[in-house]
Design a protein around this nucleic acid. Structure first.
Lengths: 143, 143
DNA sequence: TTGCGTGCAAACGGTTTGCAGGAAC
DNA sequence: GTTCCTGCAAACCGTTTGCACGCAA
């Protein structure tokens, strides 16, 4: 319900920026906001197609491109060979990906803040850490 | 000189493991070891072709696959849409990639060790951080 | 002589693009 | 009515695979 309301708000903002609010775009926005996880373009396409079967995957990519440009969506490469997308409003966090079982654990941002600080001080580099993917082995698989 | 010597040593080890030491494989090893940077399969292919023009890119991929399996080469995704390769012996380090000018800065491992420690303690997750790529803006571009 | 390694060509999978027709405004 | 957006199909690009030949051992 909240997701739908949000997507309506985004829709309005959309129109005010001079973009057309098509059913395809609405469905893509809804799919993004209803997903808990980070989803791929194909995932979005599948969800959209459930309601509106002839929507083409290229429309999904073009809409994601647009949303990315507007800063409404973050694109992440979680190492699976395909990009994943996530509403920017849902905040920053990071992913620990287990190389053995494939599960991903989301972590808070805090463990990464000191790293960010160090990189800034020692290298003058302002890290843009919004979604970092780190590979390794999770607690269960290490037992 | 050192690079060539090393690649000869690796070659011997290669043969002892039951793999054949072909000119193609020698050239690929040399290309890897002579590169300062992390290079892509295409880079390797170009260098190899300079001496032995009809070598096929699929041979490069197959050799890299083999070297990866033997732990002699690390494969990294620096976010450019293609993998990059690097001799494992050259040690671990990380990359700060400037989103503005495209330059990459290599950093020591130390700033990442405390992160690694925190992830292990708080999440029981043993991070396998060998080559991490972090995006942001470098000191020069921030001026 | 054996079978591993290679070149070739084609397939693959995710993403992008050109185009003409259609819908939002 | 105009312009933007879409569906379709084909191109794209890095990577992988099947196959038959050829070379290392």
């Amino acid at each position: 319900m909240k997701g739908l309301k949000r997507s309506k708000e985004v829709g309005e903002a959309f129109r005010e920026l001079g973009y057309r609010l098509t059913p395809q775009r609405q469905l893509i926005l809804t799919a993004l906001q209803q997903s808990d996880d980070h989803i791929s373009a194909e995932d979005i396409h599948a969800r959209v197609c459930a309601k509106y079967p002839q929507v083409n995957i290229s429309t999904v990519y073009r809409t994601l491109e647009l949303l990315k440009g507007l800063g409404l969506v973050t694109e992440t490469d979680l190492g699976s060979g395909r990009f994943r997308y996530h509403p920017a409003e849902k905040g920053h966090h990071h992913h620990l990906i287990c190389e053995q079982c494939g599960n991903t654990i989301e972590t808070a941002e805090s463990p990464f803040l000191s790293l960010k600080r160090t990189l800034l001080m020692e290298y003058g580099f302002k890290a843009n850490i919004s979604h970092l993917a780190i590979f390794g082995r999770c607690a269960r698989c290490r037992r």
